[in-house]
Amino acid sequence: MIAYILKRLSLSIPLLLGITFITFALIKSLPGDPVLSLVGERASPQAMEQIRKEIGTNRPFIAQYIGYLRLLMKGQMGRSYFTNRPVMSDLIEKFPNTLKLALGAMIFAIPIGFLLGLTAALNQGRWADRAASLISIGGISLPVFWIGLILMSVFAMKFRWLPPSGTGDIRYLILPAITLGLPSSASIARVARTTVFDILGQPFIKAVRAKGIRESGIIFRHVLRNVMIPLVTIIGLDFGSYLNGAVLTETIFGYNGIGRFTMEGIIKRDYPVVMGMLLFGAVVFIVINMIMDIIYHYIDPRLRIYGHNK
């Protein structure tokens, strides 16, 4: 197992290198110039040239790129052009918030989505199925900022149970986590419903039923295990994207996560911030993919990725 993880990680190095190159090239090809945001409305061209020289954006593209790689090699991500703070320390400060929010969203989304999907599949065509489908369609199609504002106006302004915005203890986490988790719970519900339904129609379920095993046993021992595979996939993907920040949710609830931080970096063309965060995002996805592969290994012997399970 450890050998496998090491192999995967070493393979990810050229991948990351490619990602840094592509993102660097993309960012640099965007119109706009960080110096323009730095200098405000009134600046002499000489002052702008001087700042370009100091931050190095006047050098040729390749030289800038190599300079950035050197910095990474030293284990640094550089400093933001604007706040002058090391990108790494902002990341370390904000990532725990993002992690909490992503976990909170998943703690909300997984059981709700799963239960909805299961209920729908087991009551196919009946009212419970229709209700569950309605909820999940709503969850997918309602825009996040709308849900967020509705939740805020009901729970924060009308009942005053929860604070409208901010970052802090668990009370600050509930509304954003629900807002963020809702679309995810809806997609989990839909996938769960179709998969459970498919599996129930498979010949082996008939065989199991013929053996006289109770329906609940069928669901728990045979159906659930098979549902896990597609669910792990979508949960992993959603979780990975949440760990990269949730710009809308963070903005509505004034939540201090990495999504807003990245977004502001993009708007101001704060290259060190954007590069750092994109790179971090890529690492997150690589790690999540690896974890998913390991989970597959345990839940489905057909997907064993290394050796044999002893």
Partner: peptide
């Protein structure tokens, strides 16, 4: 100073007395 990017959120905070 609380950093609240969204206008409507700031209005909610103000009306809650925060």
């Amino acid at each position: 100073y609380r950093i609240i990017p969204e206008d409507l959120t700031a209005v909610a905070e103000f009306e809650n007395g925060n």
